[in-house]
């Protein structure tokens, strides 16, 4: 088994404001999805959500408001899962609730130092 990083990306600026009920339904979708991976004993680390804004330190003197001005999508969160292959990791990533927000999941094998 190898660890794979799942990076959740979406254009959070275009997501309309949600009612509390919609927000709760979205939370449930995430919890059920991550719970499904955990129930298969394939969750290494649930990970965390990331705050919407951030800073990018480009060099000693340049710091910009980030994440990235050039692309609209930003990273909303990450998790680490266990899988035998990319194929299996991709199957696990399918069904991720980020798709309903027009987002995507980047799957990266973790290569330990």
């Amino acid at each position: 088994m190898k660890d794979y990083l799942l990076v959740y990306r979406a254009d959070y600026t275009t997501i309309p404001d949600r009612t509390p009920e919609e927000a709760a339904a979205m939370t449930k979708r995430w919890m059920d999805w991550i719970g499904s991976i955990a129930a298969q004993n394939k969750l290494t680390d649930r990970g965390q959500r990331l705050a919407a804004s951030g800073k990018v330190v480009k060099n000693e003197s340049t710091v910009t408001n980030g994440p990235y001005a050039e692309i609209k999508e930003s990273i909303g969160g990450y998790s680490i899962i266990k899988a035998n292959s990319y194929e299996e990791a991709i199957v696990l990533a399918k069904g991720c609730p980020v798709f309903t927000q027009g987002g995507n999941v980047e799957v990266r094998e973790i290569s330990p130092m």
Binding site: D32, G35, Q40, L43
Partner: peptide, 18 residues
């Protein structure tokens, strides 16, 4: 109960919890 099991499995996997 479902949400509690979702969280329990994140802390510790067991077949019976799954």
């Amino acid at each position: 109960v479902l949400q509690l099991y979702n969280r329990l499995l994140q802390i510790e996997y067991s077949p019976i919890a799954a």
